[in-house]
Structure formats: structure tokens, C-alpha cells
Computed example of a mutant assay.
Amino acid sequence: TAPAVSAMARLNLTQTIQTGVIGSEDGSLEYAKRPDWFKKWETTGVLRHNDKNNDGRIQYYNDKNENFNQQSASFGWKGNELEHIPFGKKEKDAKNGPDNDFLVLANPEIANLPGWVVALVVAGGLAAALSTAAGLLLAISSAISHDLLKGIIKPSISEKQELNASRLAMVGAIIVAGYFGLNPPDFAAGTVAIAFGLAASSIFPVLMMGIFSKKMNRQGAIAGMIAGMGITLLYVFQHKGILFISSTSFLGNMEPNWFLGITPNAFGAIGALVNFAVAFAVSKTSDEAPKEVQDLVENIRIPSND
């Protein structure tokens, strides 16, 4: 659904801006005649016009396409003129192209749909975000208070202490989420890709080996998770900056610096391979998993008839 909506949104925006034959004198929309929705969204900073060739019209195209740049130059175009200002930034920090989230939220207005459709889109987005956030907060707080604190670090804590730890963990998770909300590592899809990459480099290999290998032990699982997540975070941080602060990046988020051409958002696959390798090696050189654990794995794979 999301890819289809984003594709339709970009098509609607393109058709609104490109009113005639590409490259013709009157083929692009005059800025003075921009629609009302354009004016409204301009006030938010997620969309703005930078008239690079001073023709009073809006040129919206992929100015990174070398094959088209020669042709666009013959039209008198000097680059894509739609920009956006990232949240919390100033005009000098404007980035090329409209904000990706804007394309989805403004799609009903661009398509001239009634206001209640816009409200439905916003309500749906908020509902999805809140439901997902609530589930993740519960999972994080339970994992820290019950699985980590009570299960490993301090099994003797009372239920009240466990509950308080859960609340503190939830507050900490909200603070971290708030920070990344104000300083997003990427647009929505990119952020999700990074999150799934971290999950793939840490949890996925351990789950797979825990089910299909009776020899996997605690030492191997922990070492694999640390190695997989560590190398993934190292790669992401050196390109996107430590804690996604761009000024602290070592190599910059530029394609020539990518390892084997792999984007930072997709490096979780490499982290998963490292996780598999390290976990397997450590489990082979350390004590086997307890017999009851091996029996449990065998019972999961081949349930008994009892």
C-alpha cells in the first residue's frame, strides 16, 4: 500500500507542476499560479520553491540524472527547484526535493479530494504510529525489566521492583525515541530500513540458530549479537554520524564510500552474516548448551506425541 500511495503522490505532484510539454516555454507551472495547497504547505517548510533560473516557473525533475541534464540545460533549466527545510533547520540547510512525508500527507489535497479525506489520512497515520509505539514500548520495558533484570542480572527482585524498572525503562525508551524523532536518521522508510537492519544483524541469526542448531549456546549467541549489531552500527555511524549527528560522520553518506556499494540502510544483511559466523565459531570453542536446552530445541523441532 505505502509504495503505491507514494507513487501516486509523486505522480500527482508531477502532473500539477508539469502543465504542458516538457521544456516548452509554458510547460511548467507559474509560481504565481501555484494552487492553494502549495501555499499552505510552503508555510511549514516541507515544500518551497527556489527559482534557480529566475523564470517565474517551477521546474521539478531529477537533476541527478546525467542523461537528462544536458537536455534540461538546453531548456534553460538550472536544476530541480522544489526543496524542503528539514525539521529544526534553517533556510540555508534546505535540501533538494520536497519532503517525502509531505508527499503522502498532501496527496489528497493535490488530488483535489475533500477535506475529510485529508483528516482520514492524518488520523490513520497517527493511529498507526501510536499503536506501533505502544506495542514497542511495552516490549522494550518488559524485555529490560523481566528478561534482562529479573532473568539474568538480579533474579531476586520483587514484583514491585520489577514494575518500577519497567516504568523507568519505558521512560528511557520514550526519551530516546523523542531524540530520534527530533533528529531522524533518515526519512520514514529509511529509518524503518535501519531498524530492520539492526534487528536482522542481532536477533534474527540467534533465533534461527537457536531453532535449527542444538549446539548453539549462550556464549555464542551473545558474541554473535554483539558482533553483528556492532559492525552494523559502526558502518551506519561512520556514514550517517554518531547517533545520526551528520557532523560526526567519518566517510559521509556518499556512494563512493560504501562497502561493496551497500547503503548504510541495508548493511544489516552483512551484520547478520557476521553474527552467524561469530556465533558459530564461539559456540564451537566453548561449552555445549545444557542438555535440557538441547532437549527443548529438539522438542520444538519435532514435537513429541505425549
Score class of each variant (00 low, 15 high):
residue 1 T to G: 09
residue 1 T to S: 11
residue 2 A to F: 11
residue 6 S to K: 14
residue 7 A to W: 01
residue 11 L to T: 12
residue 15 Q to R: 15
residue 17 I to V: 15
residue 18 Q to T: 13
residue 20 G to C: 11
residue 35 P to R: 05
residue 39 K to M: 03
residue 44 T to I: 03
residue 46 V to A: 07
residue 53 N to A: 05
residue 55 D to A: 04
residue 64 K to R: 09
residue 69 N to S: 07
residue 74 S to W: 13
residue 76 G to M: 06
residue 79 G to T: 01
residue 79 G to E: 02
residue 80 N to L: 01
residue 80 N to Y: 06
residue 90 K to M: 02
residue 90 K to Q: 04
residue 94 A to E: 03
residue 103 L to M: 11
residue 108 P to M: 02
residue 110 I to L: 10
residue 116 W to R: 03
residue 130 L to Y: 04
residue 136 L to V: 12
residue 152 I to T: 15
residue 161 Q to L: 08
residue 164 N to G: 11
residue 166 S to A: 14
residue 181 G to C: 05
residue 184 P to W: 02
residue 184 P to A: 06
residue 186 D to S: 09
residue 204 F to A: 15
residue 205 P to M: 13
residue 213 S to R: 10
residue 215 K to S: 12
residue 219 Q to H: 14
residue 220 G to C: 10
residue 228 G to H: 15
residue 229 M to C: 08
residue 230 G to T: 07
residue 232 T to M: 13
residue 241 G to Y: 04
residue 244 F to Q: 01
residue 257 N to H: 05
residue 264 P to H: 02
residue 265 N to D: 11
residue 265 N to G: 13
residue 271 G to E: 02
residue 279 A to W: 12
residue 281 A to F: 04
residue 281 A to C: 06
residue 282 V to I: 04
residue 286 S to F: 08
residue 289 A to C: 12
residue 291 K to R: 13
residue 292 E to I: 09
residue 293 V to L: 12
residue 295 D to S: 06
residue 302 I to A: 09
residue 303 P to L: 10
residue 306 D to C: 11
